[in-house]
Design a protein around this nucleic acid. Structure first.
Lengths: 343, 343
DNA sequence: GCACTTGCGGCAAACGTTTGTGTAAAGCAT
DNA sequence: ATGCTTTACACAAACGTTTGCCGCAAGTGC
């Protein structure tokens, strides 16, 4: 029952066809038209048929050894449990498969020491390039990596002027501001996420700018930082309420943080949306399913992943590439409906 | 600024130390004690220091080519967006990293054709073994794979008598039955999940058995199948209510399905837990954060992943291995509190 | 003094590709 | 018939490891 037969090699194909391995290699790797430069029509035919019949599969490590290209890319994310990053990774993996590339993914937990260590592991695996979903603003790590000649792109978060595929988060913040202001909210609190994540920074900047342009200044105590998950949102919301009472709107830089915040509001008997509007970000599937369906900003997470991988392969090919920033879309639901005037 | 310097090779180390590459290879790959069989203390010392100083890293594809082992394992999951599978994968990846193994992960979306295609891609990458998180009951695919001599283990779901690391889902179902029955519930509905997933099958079997032992028979119209996510739970709950009115307890084989079901109950003005108790499965972080905190069965997802990988490496080493089944734990919360007697 | 083990390390052959270069035969023009 | 370019392959050298086998010296037993 044991399968001892070794895999089919180029050599076996070559022997069976009665031709040299180099010819087989060239025929296999060239396009239909190109193949004619290397072998006669009849030989090409024979090679193709034997390859199919014997089920030949190239040995990728042998090929890598020779070509010095592994067809591997490493992906670092803060945490795969996070729906947003999992979705982005799905986009990356989907695009990679289409290109015949394989990906390694690993969690950094947003800890700089991990980022460095995991990156080294990836490099020791001889990846052709890397994709970072966990870029930290202000850390020199990525700059040093670029200096070393390592090829990489960023997804989800941007940093410096490294190439990245992101959502236009400033725009996303502005959309929220317009919506909240136009429905009469004036005292807006922001759950800004982690201070090192450009996503939170940009979303916050967007809403703050748009409010300022409308003549509304958001005071510092209305901007609190915290994790991008439910417990993080819970804890941040508590801090905000304790620092200055309840605002009439809360914008969370992440749906899960919004859910955590709504938990706090419920505990304290504060009504959503009547007392306070709540808006999240990303349009997680859960958002629509919540007891109070959540208004949120839809970001093209899957597409961000796809574009990130495409950027990387272009870069590896030697092309000049530019960052892409995809447009967000506001999704209106019950959690931010206009307050019912109290009679 | 371009980094053209090629990586350090064994040959360079050997030349610098003044010794043959074979000696360097042996010293590097052997344990401290073992190394003494191959070189004198002084030579070992010199090799080690040069290796460290030059930052030598073994070329894994060259090594794989020679050893016929890639140090790679492929992981197939239904969908990485699913928190449960993402967590299991995190366990796999964590254990793999500890063992110096790298993993490829990909989504099958629970579609058999995808499972086959993705598996072939993994095999063409020359993985040493595979881990399936998407085993389908009744499909011949895994049997055929085993017949071909491919090494693999299952996680999360079991199938036939292939080696697997799972939660004891039957036990999980029983725990729920005991709890609901002891708090006076008698008409229990089950959101059983997908019919091909052993998780749903076993959890359902567990609760049905335990109820039967207590003299309560759960009728067929109280068992509905559906997706393991919020929309799936929503849709399944609707079907159940329409088939036979509202039971006094609902057990969902998955927290997200439970959330979807609670959405339906809210829409219809059915009170949780007063009119109906709701119990989920997996103890997702969100469960505790919900408007009505969710009673659920905690399954050791991360540990399932770790054990799955460990099983696979044991198997690859040639050891005789046995499936592991980890114990679940019931987590009581508000969604299944005893109904307040109506005065 | 001898044969014999042991310690230490070199030699060289793989593993399966890719790719630069060499070269017969065939085709063409003169 | 001669010189020329194509066509259609073959040859062989890498790529960086691992590992079976061999060799040489020093040590051991008698």
């Amino acid at each position: 029952m044991e399968n001892l037969s070794r895999p089919v090699t180029l050599r076996m194909i070559a022997d069976e066809v009665g031709v040299n391995v180099s010819t087989v290699s060239r025929v296999i790797n060239a396009s239909d038209a190109e193949a004619r430069r290397w072998a006669s029509g009849e030989v090409i035919e024979r090679i193709r048929s034997v390859v199919a019949e014997r089920g030949y599969q190239r040995n990728p490590q042998a090929a890598s050894l020779r070509t010095r290209r592994s067809g591997l890319v490493g992906v670092l994310v803060p945490r795969l449990q996070d729906f947003v990053l999992a979705t982005i990774y799905e986009g990356i993996e989907e695009a990679a498969t289409e290109q015949g590339i394989s990906t390694f993914v690993t969690n950094s937990l947003d800890i700089p020491a991990n980022q460095i260590a995991r990156t080294e592991i990836m490099l020791s695996r001889r990846v052709d390039g890397l994709i970072f979903g966990d870029a930290h603003a202000g850390e020199p790590f990525l700059d040093e990596l670029a200096e070393r000649g390592v090829r990489f792109v960023l997804v989800s978060r941007r940093s410096g002027n490294h190439i990245s595929a992101t959502c236009d988060d400033v725009m996303g913040g502005r959309l929220v501001a317009e919506h909240l202001l136009s429905s009469g909210r004036r005292d807006i609190g922001i759950l800004a996420g982690q201070p090192y994540a450009s996503t939170g920074i940009d979303r916050t900047a967007g809403i703050v700018q748009a409010c300022r342009e409308a003549g509304i200044e958001i005071p510092p105590h209305r901007i609190v930082q915290g994790g991008f998950d439910a417990p993080g949102g819970h804890e941040a919301a508590v801090r905000m309420l304790e620092a200055g009472g309840c605002p009439d709107a809360i914008f969370a830089a992440n749906d899960f943080a919004a859910i955590g915040a709504m938990g706090v509001l419920r505990e304290r008997g504060i009504a959503v949306p009547d007392d306070v509007a709540v808006v999240g970000y990303n349009d997680t599937p859960l958002a629509a399913e919540l007891p109070i369906p959540l208004t949120t900003v839809r970001s093209p997470m899957h597409e961000i992943g796809r574009q990130g991988l495409d950027l990387l392969v272009s870069m590896l090919r030697g092309d000049e590439v530019e960052s892409v920033r995809l447009a967000p879309e506001l999704i209106l639901r019950a959690s931010s409906a206009s307050a019912v005037p109290k009679m």
